[in-house]
Amino acid sequence: MKHVELVNGNLRFPALMAGDGEPVLLLHGFPDCHLNWVHQLEALAGAGYCAVAPAMRGYAPGCLAPDGDYSLRAAVEDVCAFANQLGGAVHLVGHDWGAAVGYLAAARSPELFLSLSTLAVPPLKRLPQAVLRVPEQLLLSAYMDFFQLPLVPEWVLRRNDLAGVEWLWQRWSPDWDGGDYLANAQRVLAEPGALSGALNWYRHLPRFWTAAHREARSWMARPIAVPTLVMLGRKDGCMSPRLLDHAVQARDFPVGLQVEQISGAGHFLHLERPQRINELLLAHLAQTAVQTAG
């Protein structure tokens, strides 16, 4: 495994890379970091892929947005730039915010992606309506309203060596100890500017009047024309698995959709059940290769 750098314009994104072969791009979420894809990096490299896990926009000094743009459009543009840097035909894997960006990137530029695999976030197209039909999700998502406040969320999360980040991990993945993975996330988010950069993703969500928001919404409305695997933990304390009942429509994925609920896992399912996630991920990538060859 080696440290590399991906770029988009003047932004520099540190990344971990392992293996040789078809590229697989792994996108992390909040409050997490690119270092915690280690199980998947090793499994993908062992199966003959080149796996690359970059820091997302705002999570490292070199990729703090100088213009303050932490919109989903900007994140999608980052990922499409990464895909082009890796050869323009990559498998895309995303967790949490990385999953949201993955859905949008695959809808915007399906020619760049061989497959899409998402963790912990249902398909976006019908998610707003699904939330209205799953009342507990409004409570689970209350933290997003809190994150709209200036400065206060940073102060709350940063207290006592980022104990607030630990609280979120415990709530979202109950009955599981984050251990070194949590420590990795806390160390990354303690870097200058990183916590505000990460929270600014949430602060851009309600900016409905912007061109960036309108463009992201237009991508969300499109079908996703790459083979897609959706995985959710049955014990997820951030995104209710019941959302799948209302957010999943096969016709939104015209070239194939597989949905898996992972027993004994919460929000950080790739860390809680890495062997099961790796099995599903490798099978999905192999099936994509068969479909492409056919």
Rank of each mutant, 00 (worst) to 15 (best):
M1Q: 14
E5Q: 11
L6V: 12
V7H: 04
N8K: 09
L11R: 08
L11H: 07
L11G: 10
F13S: 04
L16A: 06
L16H: 04
E22Y: 13
P23H: 05
H28S: 15
G29F: 03
D32W: 08
H34Y: 13
E42V: 00
C50D: 06
C50V: 08
V52L: 12
A53G: 06
P54M: 04
M56T: 03
M56Y: 01
G62V: 03
G62R: 05
C63R: 00
C63P: 01
G68Q: 06
L72Q: 05
E77F: 03
G88L: 01
V90E: 00
W97T: 14
V101W: 10
Y103P: 06
A106L: 04
A107D: 09
R108Y: 09
L112T: 00
A120Q: 10
A120V: 08
P123V: 09
K125F: 06
A130G: 09
R133V: 01
P135R: 11
Q137F: 02
L138H: 14
D145A: 06
L149T: 08
P153L: 03
E154Q: 14
L157C: 05
A163P: 12
G164E: 05
G164C: 02
V165F: 05
W169S: 01
D175T: 12
D175G: 15
W176F: 14
D177E: 15
G179H: 01
G179M: 07
Y181T: 15
L182A: 08
A185H: 13
A190Q: 09
L199A: 07
L199F: 09
N200H: 12
H204A: 10
F208P: 08
T210M: 06
A212Y: 12
A212E: 15
S218Y: 14
W219C: 08
W219M: 13
P227V: 14
T228I: 11
V230Y: 05
M231K: 08
G233D: 14
G233E: 04
K235E: 13
D236T: 04
D236R: 06
S240W: 07
L243C: 08
H246V: 02
F253R: 03
P254C: 02
V259P: 04
V259Q: 05
I262F: 00
A265W: 07
F268C: 06
L269P: 00
R273K: 15
L280E: 04
L280P: 07
L281Q: 02
H284K: 01
A286L: 04
Q287S: 11
T288G: 09
T292E: 06
G294F: 13
